[in-house]
Simulated scan of single mutants.
Amino acid sequence: MTNTSHTMIYRVLGSDEWAEALSSGHYDGAPHDIADGFIHFSTIDTLAETLALHYPKRGGLRLLHVPVAAVDDKLKWEPARGGTLFPHLYDQLSVEHVARVDDLKLDDNEVHILPEDLRAG
């Protein structure tokens, strides 16, 4: 199943996980990814919800921007959460495929602040 409406997908991970990926040249995923057999990604439309559900009030996070074209041959768009299609990478993520990395800060209410160019409205 493909989804051609998105050109970029996003992965949230801890700064320690990103440092390890940089050291090894690839990211294998968090324990839940490894158990599921794929690396979970978000789209711009699901990113804020992913942060709120899976990383509430957690500091020290990085946001990886990955072009769909770089991983399309190993990417599957599969339904989750009420039928919403999520991108799942059935492979390691090479650090070479990461186009941009942002630090995710928390606001005064401990809600993650998305980079300005990713904010809705």
Rank of each mutant, 00 (worst) to 15 (best):
T7V: 08
L75Y: 00
D72H: 11
L13K: 02
L63V: 01
D72V: 15
P115D: 07
G121I: 06
G37W: 05
D91Y: 03
T50V: 09
R100C: 12
M8W: 10
L106T: 01
L75C: 06
D103L: 06
H6C: 14
L22P: 00
V66G: 08
S23H: 08
L106N: 00
A30L: 15
F38V: 11
P56A: 01
L106S: 00
D117I: 12
L47F: 01
H97L: 11
W18H: 12
F41C: 08
A35R: 14
L85G: 06
L118W: 14
T50K: 04
M1N: 14
I113G: 13
S5G: 12
V12C: 03
A99W: 05
F38A: 15
Y27R: 04
S24C: 11
L63P: 04
D103I: 15
I34N: 09
A30Q: 10
K76Q: 12
L89M: 03
A69Y: 13
E78D: 15
I34Q: 10
V98D: 01
I9C: 04
K105D: 13
D91C: 01
A80L: 06
D102L: 05
I9T: 03
E17H: 15
T46H: 03
H112L: 07
A52V: 05
K57R: 13
R58F: 05
P56Y: 01
W77D: 07
L47C: 02
P67V: 05
M1E: 12
P79K: 03
T2Y: 14
K57C: 09
L22D: 02
H6A: 15
S42W: 07
D73F: 04
R81I: 04
I44Y: 05
V95N: 02
D36P: 12
H40R: 09
L75N: 07
D91Q: 02
T84S: 07
L114G: 12
I9P: 02
D36A: 13
T43W: 01
P79A: 06
G82A: 12
L53G: 09
P79H: 02
K105M: 13
I34Y: 03
L63K: 01
A120M: 14
V111W: 03
P79Q: 03
G25H: 07
I9V: 11
K74L: 12
V98M: 01
R119N: 15
D107M: 00
G121V: 15
P31Q: 09
E78I: 13
L64Q: 02
L85V: 06
H6I: 14
I34E: 06
T2M: 15
I9D: 04
D72Q: 13
L51D: 00
R100F: 05
M8E: 14
L104I: 04
Y90M: 08
L64C: 07
R62C: 09
Y55N: 05
Y55C: 02
